[in-house]
Amino acid sequence: MAEQSDLAEVIKNIQADVTTIIKGEIELAKAELVPQAKAAGVGAGLFGAAAYVALSGAALLFSGLAFWLSVGFQAWFHLEILPALAWGFAVMAVLFFLLAGVLALVGKSRLTFSPPEATVANAEASLAAVKSAVAKGKADVDALSLTGRQPALEAGADTAATPGRS
């Protein structure tokens, strides 16, 4: 009886030690990863802010180009300010739509995918290997008799025993 309680105590101690070790490892991982995750979050936020500022700058740049084009229309075609602004912004919009169309066509041409030839060849080779292994296994099983001896040996033993008996 004392041995069973000692064994139970040892098992409880092992469980407690394993739990302590696992908790310590988890805390160590947290201590290492939390600062890295915070730094990554700050970095991602800064990249997002940079993208927003860049897009805002691009919008201002293109608005300025549209105004510059409007001033040109006003000077070249002697238009009033409102029609010149309309034409300037319309021309910039058309240029943007043309650029978007060209980018879409280039992107579409890059989206051609070919099948994974090496993977297909490897899968076919594996399938052939499995089929041949199954066929060999079936042949080996068919070659065995119910007694576990090979039929060729039994036939040879019967023919060898028959001449000796006569």
Rank of each mutant, 00 (worst) to 15 (best):
N122P: 00
G43C: 01
L98R: 04
T162M: 10
A121I: 06
F89L: 05
E25R: 14
T20Y: 06
K30M: 15
V42S: 06
K138Y: 13
A157T: 09
V130A: 07
A129F: 04
L61K: 04
S56Q: 10
A31E: 13
A123T: 04
A93F: 14
L144A: 12
D158P: 01
I14K: 07
A29R: 11
P83E: 00
K38R: 14
A2D: 11
A44K: 04
D140K: 01
L111T: 09
G45I: 02
I21P: 01
L127Y: 07
F67G: 03
A75M: 14
A121T: 08
A58Y: 10
G137Y: 02
A129E: 11
I21D: 11
A143H: 00
E25M: 15
E117T: 10
A44S: 02
G64I: 01
R165N: 13
A121P: 01
A59W: 04
F62A: 01
R165S: 14
A50H: 00
G101W: 06
A160E: 14
L146C: 06
I26H: 13
G148L: 00
F97M: 10
G57D: 09
V34R: 08
E27G: 03
A157G: 03
W87A: 14
A100H: 14
G41Q: 02
G101P: 03
V141G: 01
S126T: 06
G88A: 00
W68D: 12
V71F: 12
F47N: 12
G164F: 13
I22Q: 08
S145W: 00
N122W: 09
V71E: 07
A121Y: 02
A135F: 00
G107F: 02
Q4F: 05
E154G: 10
K108L: 10
D158M: 04
V130D: 05
A16N: 11
A50M: 04
I21C: 09
E32Q: 09
A143W: 01
L28W: 05
G43K: 12
L46F: 12
G101E: 04
A37M: 04
T112P: 01
E32D: 03
E32R: 07
A8P: 00
A152C: 03
K138R: 15
K30Y: 07
V18T: 06
V141R: 10
A157V: 12
A39D: 03
G164C: 11
E154F: 13
G101S: 05
P35Q: 04
D17V: 11
G88M: 02
S145I: 00
A29T: 07
I26A: 13
A31N: 07
A29C: 05
S5Y: 11
V94E: 03
P163H: 12
F97D: 07
K12P: 01
A84Y: 01
T112S: 05
L99K: 15
G137D: 02
A161D: 13
A37F: 06
V106Q: 10
A121W: 03
E32L: 10
L28Q: 13
S5D: 13
F62G: 00
S63D: 09
P163M: 06
A161C: 08
E80H: 09
A129L: 08
A31F: 15
Y52G: 00
L103G: 04
V53W: 02
G45P: 02
L103K: 04
A84I: 02
V130W: 02
W87C: 13
L111G: 10
D140W: 01
K131V: 04
W87E: 08
P163T: 15
L7D: 11
